[in-house]
């Protein structure tokens, strides 16, 4: 590990001041991703700005009936927060599907959005990787790409965003509140993460001198008919091969509104409003679900080791929509798929 300076930010303005004056500095929250990256020599920040004690650790109701989640609320606290459990159970479920209890205790809400991909080449400085070293090449395209993306890939990068929580946030229409030298702004969740294109080194549209202060959720919906299903290589503590967040509003047997987002398949949480539109107004049955799945996956493209994900996602989508429609969301404790 390389020596670095350490400062503790006193407040948000102080944090922004620090990051604005030193482009090689990094915020550290829970450290569960950043420290690993530093040990592997992937990140070499000259200075760590500790934001973990900023007063951004509360979950508050907003005037429009939604919630404002501070960027430093630990993943565990968020999952088990009574307001989240009762009003946004999809979010609780997605968080509990991720990592391990110990990691969730450390991981922060803001850090979860900004965690880097798990592509093995990204972590191994002895191999080429465009995301780590732009222009060096993508080792995964013709290499070990079993966990890689099938949607929205580019010639430059086929990595995925590994978060579970973000899949639910995408489905729930969250907004990201950030503060920079020029003040505050909000970013729609769908616009927060980027596709790799020819700049895979940029995961998000957060500017280098901005801090995430909060995630806002609109007034609760989809409290009854939702499910988060995570398909992975062991039954816990593994990143998703494919994960699906589905939420429905039903009127009789008809779908009044729908949300559908996938994890583990793209460089960003993959929400497809076209597929959602195809669900709306349709009967909640297998034919409808399969049609939506096909639509969502219409441009999916597999690589040597991950082509199985396309069919897996198709079946997973139909299954998760069925769970949602039946009001039998996937349990994250019992690993039997409902």
């Amino acid at each position: 590990m390389i020596n670095f300076q350490y400062v503790r930010a006193n407040d948000v303005a102080d944090a922004v001041r620090h990051i604005a004056t030193d482009p090689t500095a990094k915020f550290i929250a829970g450290g569960t991703n950043l420290i690993d990256l530093m040990k592997d020599d992937v990140e070499r920040p000259s200075r760590l700005i500790d934001i973990s004690r900023l007063p951004l650790n509360t979950v508050e109701e907003t005037t429009d009936g939604g919630l404002r989640i501070g960027a430093l609320v630990p993943n565990s606290d968020l999952a088990y927060h009574p307001l989240v459990q009762s009003r946004y159970p999809l979010l609780t479920s997605a968080i509990l599907a991720g990592a391990s209890q110990q990691l969730r205790n450390m991981a922060s809400t803001g850090g979860n959005l900004l965690q880097r991909t798990r592509c093995a080449y990204f972590y191994d400085t002895a191999t080429p990787c465009n995301k780590r070293t732009p222009g060096s090449g993508c080792s995964a395209i013709n290499g070990l790409n079993r966990i890689h993306a099938i949607l929205g890939t580019s010639e430059a990068c086929i990595a995925t965003h590994p978060s579970d929580m973000c899949v639910a946030l995408a489905a729930l229409d969250a907004t990201v509140h950030v503060t920079g030298p020029d003040g505050e702004r909000t970013i729609m969740f769908a616009d927060f993460h980027r596709l790799p294109g020819d700049t895979p080194q940029r995961d998000t549209n957060l500017r280098p001198n901005e801090i995430i202060t909060a995630i806002a959720l609109p007034a609760p919906r989809f409290v009854t008919n939702y499910s988060y299903l995570k398909i992975r290589d062991r039954l816990s503590y593994a990143f998703a091969l494919v994960s699906i967040a589905a939420a429905l509003e039903l009127e009789g047997g008809t779908i009044a509104d729908a949300r559908l987002a996938l994890g583990g398949v793209a460089h960003k949480p993959w929400r497809d409003t076209g597929a959602e539109a195809a669900l709306r107004g349709q009967p909640a049955n297998q034919a409808t679900f399969t049609r939506a799945a096909d639509l969502l996956l219409r441009d999916a493209k597999g690589f040597e080791h991950n082509a199985f994900k396309i069919d897996l996602a198709r079946r997973g989508i139909a299954r998760t929509l069925t769970q949602a429609a039946n009001g039998t969301p996937q349990s994250q404790a019992d690993k039997k798929v409902r």
Binding site: S100, R118, A120, Y121, D124, A126, T127, S139, N142, G143, L144, D233, R234, L235, S236, Y237, A238, K335
Partner: peptide
């Protein structure tokens, strides 16, 4: 153990990505 045979390197040399059973399994 996953090896990228082009580089002759082990690519999952850690206990997060080298999978073994956890309690749930």
């Amino acid at each position: 153990t996953l090896i990228d045979h082009r580089f002759g390197r082990i690519m999952n040399a850690n206990v997060a990505e080298y999978h073994m059973p956890v309690n749930a399994d």
